[in-house]
Every structure is written in C-alpha cells, then in structure tokens.
Design a protein around this nucleic acid. Structure first.
Length: 761
DNA sequence: GTACGTTCATTTTTT
DNA sequence: ATGAACGTAC
C-alpha cells in the first residue's frame, strides 16, 4: 500500500479532488496543459495504492499505445515496479482485439482472425465492386468504404443501412456493405471498425459474457473521452452499467476526430448518462505562456457552436509574442522555419528535440524535411509512410498471417505471385472464379484444385476432359504455392516466432526476390527493413509459443506511428496536427496557415467541420510551451500547380496586438518572378538572394567543382532563347542546370553541352 | 507472363 | 509531384 501523499504530491486542489473522487461516475473537463493525463494516471495509482483495488480489476483506455506505455511507466514510478502489472491499459482497438481473441468463439467465429488495415480494407472493397459488377471509376472504392466505416462506427449493420438507404449512392453502399462483410467473414478477418462493432455485439448478444467483463473490470477509466465514437461510447456504457465506476477525462475543445465518427455529444451528455456524476474542471494551464494561450483562445472563441466556456489561465507569465511569418512559397516557408530553428539552436536556448513543426496534411512535411536536411538539422517525421505500410513489410506479414489464418484472402492474393512464381493475372482470376463459384476462400479453392489434380492423375490417361481446363503449368504453380502455405502452417505449430520467420523468408527466397526486383542496393535496404521486423519479433520470445504469432500480428496491425516516437533522439519533430495531440514542445512552428489548408478546403463549407479546424489550430497552438510561430505562404503548390494562397481566417481572428509580424521577405521574389511569362519559372524561382542549392558543396573529382549558375539568373540558349535559372546542381562531374525558358517551358540542361550564355545582369 | 512506358487521377486528418 | 492503371512490346 502506498502513501496517498506520494500520489497527490505536486497536484493542485482541483487535480487532487479528481484523483480522490469517490468511486462512481466522474467527468473531468480539462483544458490543454492542465495535467489531465497525470490526473488519470494518479487516479489509477490512487485506486490501487490507497483504495486497495486489485489492478486486475482496472481497465484504462488511452488514446494511443504510447500513452498506455507511459501510464505503465509512471505507475511503476509511483507504486513500485510491477505493482500495476495486472492492469489492463490500451487503446479501444487493442483492448477489443484482446477481448475478441478470447471470446469471439461465442459469435461463432474462429479465434485467429486477421486484422485488416486501411490498405487491406481497400483491397476487399475493390473485390466487392468486381463481385457486384460495379465500375470502380463510377463508384470510388474509398468513398464507399468511408460510408461503410461511418455506418459501423455508429453501430449500423448492413441490414439497417439497407432499410434506411434513400439515395442511389446509399443503395450502392448498402449492397457493397453486405458483400464486404461477407468477404471479411469468409476470410476470417475483422477490419478496424469491426473490432469495436463485434465487441459490442458480443456484449449485447451474450449477457453472461458481458457480466463476466463487468465483474472483471469494475473500475473503468478513459482518456480523450471527447473523441469517442458511438461504438466506443456504447462499449464503455455496457461495461460501466453494473458498477458505474467510470472516470473519464476530456476536453470538448480538443475534439478533432469527427471524421472517424467521434461524437462530441458523448462528453456533453455524460452528466445525463450518469446523473450522480461528479464534474471537475481543470482550468489552470501549466504548459504554455499567456501569450500562447491568448492566441489559441482567440481562435477557438470564434466557434459557431456553443461551448461550455472554460477560463484557461496560467501562472507562466506573458512570454514571447507569437510570431507570424510569411514565406513566398512552401519552400521558402520551410526555409524560414529551418533558418529560425538554426538560430534558436545556435543561441543555445533550445535543442532540436525541443522543437516541433506541425502541419495539417502529411504532404506538407516534404518541404520542411528538405529545408531541415539543407541545414543539416536532425529531424524525425512522424507518420507519412509508416514502417508497417511498406510493401516488403506487408508482404512479409502476409506470409505470417497466412501461416495463422490461410483463409485470409487479402494476404493470399497479395503474395500469390510474389516473389514471381508464374501465377499471372489470368491464373489468379481463374482461381478467384473457382473460389467465387464455390463461395469458399482462395485457400480452399487451392485445396480443391489439389484434390482434382490427384483424381486426374489416378484416371490413367491424362485426358484434359474437364470443362474448367487450366494449363498444367498454371496448375503446378498454384499447387506449389499451396504446398508452401501448408508447410508454413506446419512450421508455425512448432517453431517460435523468430525461427519461423527465418525459416519462412529462407523458404520464400525473400532476400533474393527483393534484390532481383529492386537491385542490390535498394533490395538490401528493403531486406534490412524485413530484418528489423524480425528483430521486433524478439520482443515476443518470452510469451508461450502458441501466443507469439497471434500477439505479434495483432500489435503490429494496431500500432500507430506516434507509438514508436521516442524521446531522447534530440531531433526536430515534424508531425501532423492530429498526431500532435497530447504532446508538448518548448517551441512549435505551425505551418500552412492558409485558406484551404487550415481550415482545409474539405471543411470550409460546413460549420461543424470548420469548427473542428478551429479546434485543430487550438490543439496545435497549445502544444507550445514557450514559443509559437505561425507561418503561411504567398503561393502554395497543390496537385503540382501553385496558386496564390489567402492567409487563414484564423489569423484574422487573432487580435493584432497579440501577434508580431515578421517582414515579408517573400515579396521581392514574388515581384521579380511575376515579370516572366513562364508560370513554372515564376512559381519555383525563390529569388536571387537565396543560398545556392546544397549540392554545390559536393565536390567531384573531374569537371566543375562548384556550380556556375544560380537560381534567378537570366540566361540565353541558342535554341530555346531567354530563360531563368530555376536551379543548378553538380551531377556526375557536370553541371545540370534547370532553366525555365520564356514560352518554352522548363528544361534540364548540362552546362557543358548546352552553351548557356549568361544574359546581362 | 512479364517489363516497361504512357496516361490519368489524385490528397485531410487515423485506429 | 507521385503513383496507380492501362496498353504495348518482348
């Protein structure tokens, strides 16, 4: 038993009140930087250490796996290592996956289900469209899938959806929905949404199972309650309906996941759901300076929706003014960020790890990344192409998934002909047709083929009399693949995970295939990724052998990029606003504050969506502890084309005296560029006073040692006429100059051949 | 059956 | 700008 004072130490009265609240429903409305995560953890520690609750009876839902891990670490510090080991903590999805792995048999399904990620889901969706003879061009798979996902998050099943379908689109979705679920079921797979939906179904159809969970998890806690969707809400409600010991923490102003079904009403109606609920407000902010809070609140206070007003305050003092900086285009914007970062680091006041750059869309990370590379500033990009979405990783996982669940059609068709083994599109379609005709998974179709083949061999003269003839070659290729899968299934039963992987990759010829496909260099890079996956497997070596593979696959499917973000790398963090939730940094740069980007163009004509963009800004701004920079660009490239950008309306919502505007360095370049008719040149030319490309530092043994052309120079070419240098770099002992010619477009030329004349300065 | 080149559409955010 | 989907050539 732990002393209460250790747990309550350093908490303010409101926080203590929350931590010590009597068991029963508790709603903690907590502003950003109010220590809500700390309160949540302390509450768990308090239940265990002071109330003497067995950790085995506590279920804590966090928003990310990373938060779950951090909670565990902090509990170890508060209670002593291992004291809280029996605690259940994780995201909704991972917790549901656990529940289902134990109890999905009650729903008449097999235990070793696959979990389909976005990519897998889309593949199923395309198969659905093919099955239903719908044209992919006319019915965007993504749109239909999004509609299905939305329905699932609201616990609407195909039948109910079909009943309420009104428009043609909804009719189509209804038919796709039904088929989609059929295919998932046949493949013994669940998609992300199913994890929640099926758990709810489990509870609703099997009261005795629900009771068991209610007894087991007598104490419930949930973080980021404002971001729960209908399914998650119902799930918690079921679990809590016996003991009512539910402690939720959230902030309606930080609700930014409506697009995946989060329903702000869940938090607004908590008091109606649990009339005895205690409500605690945490309004003191410990994170940010007043200057930062003022800016954040100025934007959120303009929301169209009515909100429960919180009065955020801080003792942190006024702090530095929030700076607004305009760049000419996204590249200059990025350069200004990188330059300011370099200045902050050089001043000695900050380290790279203290700094974050945040943006609305992942695509924006690229310019930032390039600018940071040019400055040789260490950085990490959170998100983008995730490790587990790389092709070679997904292929490796597909084999492993098949070893556990051969009915997994998505995985099977993924590696059916990878590495190439002579099974082309035609043969694959043939196999799919057979599977479809018998309504069985592809694996079973393969088995049927094998049985046929055996029968045919026994009928002495090999007369291909059957109607469904398939070339012997194709058949043998398919049977070879079947043998491979069956071997894998066999090996899986006896080998520990790591050894299984070694065996599998060897048997498949994984490394050779990668080298053949991508060349030695990239092939080895990709193979190293696979080896990294192999290393991850070591973390599961201590589990009972039969649990290693399923647990590994489950966690790998549900991991998010933020989960692997490690502190201590001391690098600038580049991250989307969504992923930044829950994090904090001394210095934050918010880039792309333009109409169409923040707020995003997809949200500008809907009031609720626009409010959510506001909250997104709010979340981003309140990540900053000491310094906040708001950047926007004069021109922004979208779809390769650049358009003039309007500064975000959010900037206008901030009283001018709260902001400090930096001089507009980009305009000179803009004016210069606008003199030329060639649009591309105008858009890409950052102006002559900028540093030449970094490549100039790279010296080559022969040829020029540095570039002799610079962006912005006027040049003349015998054939193309007048132009403007866009960029120049050294390539293999020569200088490659990119020039935008008036009326002739952008050309890449080698200086040694092109005979470019420098025009008059 | 595969490899390559062309066209085209495409981008919000995530478990 | 990048990638997927299609068509043509081996």
């Amino acid at each position: 038993m732990t002393d209460a004072s250790t747990i309550l130490d350093g908490l303010n009265p409101a926080q203590q009140q929350a931590v010590m609240a009597a068991p029963g429903p508790v709603l903690v409305l907590a502003g950003p930087g109010s220590g809500k995560t700390r309160v949540l953890t302390s509450r768990v520690a308090y239940l265990i250490g002071v109330h003497g609750v067995d950790p085995h009876h506590i279920l804590a839902v966090t928003f990310t796996n990373k938060a779950a891990r951090e909670m565990r670490d902090r509990l170890d510090a508060l209670l002593g290592p291992g004291e809280a080991a029996a605690l259940t903590v994780g995201t909704f999805h991972s917790i549901c996956a656990r529940f289902l792995r134990r109890d999905i048999v009650h729903l008449g399904r097999e235990r070793d289900f696959a979990i389909y990620d976005t990519d897998d889901q889309l593949r199923v969706m395309k198969r659905v469209l093919r099955d239903l003879n719908l044209d992919e061009k006319k019915h965007a798979p993504r749109a239909i899938h999004a509609a299905i996902s939305r329905a699932k998050n609201e616990l609407i099943d195909p039948a109910a959806y079909s009943r309420h379908a009104r428009t043609y689109f909804e009719e189509v979705v209804a038919r796709c929905f039904a088929r989609y679920q059929e295919l998932l079921r046949d493949a013994n797979a669940l998609d992300f949404d199913d994890l929640l939906v099926e758990t709810v179904r489990l509870f609703e159809q099997h009261p005795t199972v629900l009771e068991r969970y209610q007894e087991r998890y007598a104490f419930l806690l949930a973080d980021e309650y404002q971001d729960t969707n209908r399914a998650q809400y119902v799930l918690l409600k079921h679990l809590a309906s016996r003991h009512h010991n539910i402690f939720v923490v959230g902030d309606e102003d930080q609700s930014i996941y409506a697009f995946r079904g989060a329903d702000i009403r869940n938090i607004l109606s908590f008091e109606r759901d649990y009339p005895q609920a205690q409500v605690i407000l945490l309004e003191q902010n410990y994170r940010s300076t007043q200057a930062i809070l003022d800016v954040a609140q100025a934007v959120i206070n303009r929301s169209a929706q009515r909100r429960r007003e919180k009065r955020l305050w801080t003792r942190n003092g006024k702090g530095a003014k929030v700076q607004v900086i305009e760049g000419y285009d996204q590249d200059e914007e990025a350069q200004l960020v990188a330059g300011e970062i370099a200045r902050l680091i050089a001043s000695g006041a900050y380290q790279p790890g203290d700094i974050a750059v945040m943006y609305r869309t992942n695509a924006q990370s690229r310019a930032i990344e390039e600018a940071l590379i040019a400055r040789q500033t260490p950085y990490i990009i959170v998100g983008g192409t995730r490790f587990y979405e790389r092709k070679e990783i997904k292929d490796a996982l597909a084999y492993l998934r098949l070893a556990l669940n051969p009915f997994d059609d998505v995985s099977l068709s993924r590696v059916l002909n990878w590495p190439p083994r002579g099974i082309g599109q035609r043969t694959q379609e043939d196999l799919e047709r057979r599977a479809g005709a018998a309504s069985v998974p592809l694996y079973v179709a393969l088995q049927m083929l094998a049985a046929d083949a055996e029968a045919a061999d026994q009928a002495a003269p090999p007369a291909p009399a059957r109607a469904e003839e398939m070339s012997l070659r194709a058949r043998n290729a398919l049977l070879g693949f079947l043998a491979l899968i069956d071997e894998a299934i066999d090996q899986r039963r006896t080998l520990p995970l790591g050894v299984l992987m070694d065996w599998l990759f060897e048997r498949v010829g994984f490394r050779e295939a990668l080298r053949r496909e991508y060349g030695d260099e990239e092939g080895d890079d990709r193979w190293n990724n696979v080896m990294e996956l192999r290393n991850v497997a070591e973390n599961y070596a201590t589990l009972p052998r039969e649990n290693q593979l399923p647990t590994f696959l489950e966690e790998v499917a549900l991991i998010s990029d933020i989960d692997t973000l490690q502190e201590g790398r001391n690098a600038v963090t580049c991250i989307t606003l969504h992923q930044a939730k829950g994090l904090e940094f001394p210095v934050v740069f918010l880039v792309g504050l333009e109409e169409g980007l923040l707020p995003h163009s997809r949200s500008t004509d809907d009031r609720d969506a626009l409010d959510e963009e506001r909250r997104l800004f709010y979340v981003g701004a309140t990540r900053a502890k000491e310094r906040l920079y708001l950047l926007h660009a004069f021109r922004r490239a979208a779809y390769g084309r650049a358009e003039v950008a309007t500064p975000s309306r959010f900037l206008h919502d901030i009283p001018p005296d709260l902001l400090q505007h930096a001089p507009k360095r980009g305009y000179a370049a803009a004016q210069q560029a606008s003199m030329f008719t060639n649009r591309a040149a105008a858009l890409r030319n950052p102006g002559r006073d900028h540093a030449p490309p970094a490549a100039i530092r790279r010296s080559e043994p022969d040829g020029p040692r540095e570039v002799s052309f610079f962006a912005g120079q006027k040049v003349r070419h015998a054939h193309f006429g007048e132009g403007i240098v866009v960029s120049s770099k050294l390539v293999e002992g020569d200088e490659e100059v990119t020039v935008a010619f008036v009326g002739k477009g952008v050309k890449r030329l080698l200086a040694s051949f092109a005979n470019l004349q420098r025009a008059e300065e």
